[in-house]
Design a binder for these strands. Sequence first.
RNA 1: GGCCCCAUCGUCUAGUGGUUAGGACAUCGGCCUCUCACGCCGGUAACAGGGGUUCAAAUCCCCUUGGGGUCACCA
Length: 487
Amino acid sequence: MVDGGVRVRFAPSPTGYLHIGGVRTALYSWLWARQNGGAFVLRIEDTDQERSTEQSVNVVLESMRWLGLGWDEGPDVGGPHGPYRQSERGEVYRDHAERLIASGHAYRCYATKEDIAAARAAYDAQGHKGGFRFESPWRDPATAPAPPSADAPSVVRFRAPVEGSTAWDDLVRGRIEVRNDTLQDAILLRSDGLPLYNFGCVVDDLTMGVTLVARGDDHIINTPPQILLYEALGAPPPTFAHMPMVLAPNGEKLSKRHAAVGVLEYRDLGYLPDALLNYLARLGWSHGDQEIFTRDELVAKFDWRHVGATAGKYDLKKLEYVQAEHLRALPPGALAAHVVPFLAKLGLEVSADDPRLLAASAHVKLRCATLVELADGLRYFFEPPRYEDKPRRKFLTPASGPVLRGLGAVVRDARVFEPEALEAAVKAWSEAEGLKLRDVAQPARVALTGRAASPGLFDVMAILGRDETLVRIETGAAMAEAAPPTD
RNA sequence: GGCCCCAUCGUCUAGUGGUUAGGACAUCGGCCUCUCACGCCGGUAACAGGGGUUCAAAUCCCCUUGGGGUCACCA
């Protein structure tokens, strides 16, 4: 043990994007560390040189930063137990492997992959229904043959006990017990000297003083051999929490085929990190009937007792709902700041403190969920309307020409250019003209926004201002008058 | 197949022996209304099946069924 506090780690392997399912593991770990004033450690498990890339490491770091899941120790910030990339910890693994060999808990095995395949084939040929367990000739020192040659490649294997059983109290599943005779003599160090997952993981968690290991339940099967390794190294194992997986809506393993699974995709789609985290937190954990949580609430209220054991299906609709709630809860200034980059993508250079942006966002945010949608709904406040074909043909007809002209006059003469006053003036005028408000409002809406749906007409006018409003009504009237007659 | 895990509305879940089985998303009605939303009101909808234990079981135990994980010199 390195010190007394809570130490939790997130240990992704950099093989592409940071998966949404992995984020939930990271989140629960992070919440636990923050709630307890402990340390959150980020470790890169890159011993699979086939699949790990430097670019992927950057994706992981960038994803975690965007999510706001800050780490106290990790590959870039360092820390007292580094390095934090497994590829740089070869010495630590070799030391521990030597210790295990010296204490009799491990041995060198010279069997080749071919030897093992042959043993398996022979076993199967005897009509067994499974349960193959490779018996290395080097397991028993009394009968072990000499190495095939002086420089023969070898792996280091764990001398796993065959008697008894191994058990632990899982934080989310309770007690789990497995008979030791179902375990293999796992390879600790490959012939190239690199550690295999179960060994690297244990050595790192041990030397980094990790007190709680939270991971997906596909690792339940790895836990007994890991506990045995802790025992062989004379150290108490950490607490384990195996969380259920995140499945696709159809029950399959969630993958690219079902939805965006890379965290950064959600950033580009216009989701808020806090919303994504909120959704993920609630997928598998609950706090009574509460659905919407701020980040601080999550830190304060998270508990392992209410983490469920059932696999959850990823529900985009619910995510969207949670996202919409967070979007609406954002203070005007923060909302504006978030949407500015998305406006820029549309070619609109708008300042985050632009009064029109602040005002318009307050209305548009009630009609969308993501920042991409928000930016789209904001467009016509910052550029001339793009008149959509369908609403234009339906509402900017010759008959609405005079209506728009009349409306223009009312707007031009309005004493106070504010929503309530405008509404009162327009209603009074339309009643006097014998027009229903909707027969005025729809053509006006299309003239003003180019669309059939928008925030309240008078709010739009007020935000646009008198001059711009008049220009657009004029434009709309002209379009209406030039339109082919309807029958 | 062996080993391990899981099982409440379509989905996420509340529920820790006694509840009209609650909430949220989705869905379907209605209200509001200048459109679209928001909001509000209401409806449909679940304890996988079978045995036990108990005065009493969604809750505890067993079996069945169904789903999932894992059986690598991947993680």
